[in-house]
């Protein structure tokens, strides 16, 4: 790759905005997702954007894309090893379920209702629940 030589030298101050600013890498990706009861659900493995298509020209004055969902599941593997899972295999945590973003991403719903927690539920119902004592608080 050629070393870039056309980097702009003078930078303007960014326009002021009407809300909190989040940088995806710094504030969203790979953060722990916690449900409304404080139970960890998963991590933010990727982010789905709505309102832009890859490699299609963007018309002047088009509305900016928004985050439609946080993604988890097989998408983690492809982020590490490359490739891309089919859209049908993406596990989505819709953005409208997100209630806050700080050092964790908080949801306003219970994890029980989410497709992101199906593995956890499967392990719980098929294995852990069947071992004596699994349902009780430790003594």
């Amino acid at each position: 790759m050629n070393r870039p030589r056309n980097t702009p030298t003078s930078l303007k101050s960014p326009p002021s905005v009407g809300g909190p600013v989040l940088d995806a890498q710094l504030h969203l990706l790979d953060r722990q997702v916690i449900d409304v009861d404080g139970l960890p659900v998963t991590t933010v493995d990727d982010i789905e954007l709505e309102g832009v298509e890859a490699d299609l020209p963007i018309s002047l004055g088009a509305r900016a894309p928004v985050i439609s969902a946080l993604l988890t599941g097989p998408v983690l593997g492809t982020r590490i090893f490359g490739g891309r899972p089919p859209s049908s295999r993406l596990i989505r945590l819709p953005w409208h379920d997100v209630s806050a973003v700080d050092v964790t991403v908080r949801l306003g719903v219970r994890s029980e209702s989410l497709s992101a927690s199906w593995v956890e539920r499967w392990v719980r119902d098929k294995i852990i629940r069947r071992i004596p004592g699994g349902k009780h608080d430790p003594d």
């Binding site: 997702v33 960890p40 991590t43 392990v123 004592g133 430790p138």
Partner: peptide, 16 residues
């Protein structure tokens, strides 16, 4: 992986 964990939870609440 962001699973639920901890001994302060019942095992069924931290299955994996």
């Amino acid at each position: 992986f962001g699973w639920s964990w901890g001994k302060f939870r019942r095992p069924v609440r931290a299955a994996r």
